[in-house]
């Protein structure tokens, strides 16, 4: 809706008046053929009711409206107007095109956000500052937060219930599958094949890793370190049926004869380079999977693969 004509200094030419709101054109658009100009808000509202030009009733749609010519925009921007906050004491007289930037910083804006100086830390509109009561506002804030908390707790409880149901169903399904596997050899073969393929698929999705310093190997990682690695494996999509076995194989007590002690490791050092290693995403650790390393001697490999954790030196 256009600017109140009374706000302008001197006479405003009739051509700069919106025929709908009778104010000075604000953000004007014009009809394509007849070139009648209106405030954007006014003509949009009118066209939503009736797709015609409000002056001569020629058919016009919203998408046909065009910005007005530069000369009209220039004439408008040169008009001198008082500030929106004149009733609140602002005496500024501005060119219409500098009004928006003035409004942002006008100190007389009654709605200007001001920080409360009493210490509650809230930012409030200037005109509400006098009425502002820190305790009341903060209490209201606490009440809304409390409400949210209750909502979230409720949601959490519901989600838990759903998860438990899913768990029960999953257990039932697993039991069912196990029974099928035991009673039917074809099923067993099928299931094993599927598991193997899943491992191969996962192995294919991981990036190759290069170990630059085999000496940095941690052969007896502690529980915290193991949990970290396990988590990363799980996030990378490690098939659940091998994850526990893999993690068991991150400690020298489960490693194959060729790696089981510092001495054997020293002796077999040259064989390390044969390993095809895969990255454990984001960690200083590598996976040496059986399916990637069928070429490696048996005394250097175990099912389903090895996890080797390093202090540093992984690329």
């Amino acid at each position: 809706m256009g600017f109140e004509i009374k706000r302008f200094q001197g006479d405003v030419d009739e051509e700069l008046i919106c025929p709908i709101c009778s104010g000075v054109l604000e953000d004007p658009l014009q009809a394509p053929a007849c070139e009648h100009a209106f405030c954007r808000a006014c003509i949009t509202e009118w066209i939503s009711r009736q797709p015609t030009c409000p002056v001569d009733r020629q058919a016009v749609t919203a998408s046909q409206l065009r910005p007005v010519p530069r000369i009209l925009r220039n004439l408008l921007s040169r008009l001198c107007t008082s500030c929106d906050n004149a009733p609140h004491g602002c005496n500024a007289v501005l060119k219409l095109d500098s009004l928006p930037s003035h409004l942002v910083e006008c100190e007389f804006n009654p709605k200007r956000p001001m920080p409360c100086e009493a210490g509650c830390g809230l930012v409030i509109p200037k005109d509400e500052l006098a009425e502002h009561n820190c305790v009341r506002e903060l209490r209201a804030l606490i009440a809304t937060q409390q409400g949210k908390l209750t909502d979230y707790q409720q949601e959490l409880a519901e989600q838990r219930l759903i998860i438990n149901e899913h768990k029960r169903e999953l257990a039932l399904l697993k039991e069912f599958m196990r029974a099928m596997r035991v009673s039917n050899p074809t099923m067993r073969a099928l299931a094993e094949q599927m598991e193997r393929e899943e491992v191969v698929r996962w192995a294919g999705s991981l990036a190759r890793a290069r170990v630059t310093r085999w000496g940095g190997m941690i052969s007896t990682p502690d529980d915290v370190l193991q949990m970290m690695i396990k988590r990363s494996l799980s996030e990378s999509g490690c098939p659940p049926h091998i994850i526990d076995d893999l993690m068991e194989n991150c400690h020298e007590r489960r490693w194959p004869p060729g790696l089981s002690s510092l001495e054997t490791r020293q002796n077999n050092r040259r064989l390390y380079e044969k390993y095809v290693c895969k990255r454990v995403p984001g960690k200083q650790a590598v996976l040496v999977l059986q399916c990637d390393n069928t070429h490696v001697d048996e005394h250097m490999m175990v099912e389903p693969g090895l996890v080797m954790i390093f202090a540093h030196g992984i690329e």
Partner: peptide
Amino acid sequence: ILKDQWAAA
């Protein structure tokens, strides 16, 4: 013009 032919101008 008081009905369907009304125009805002």
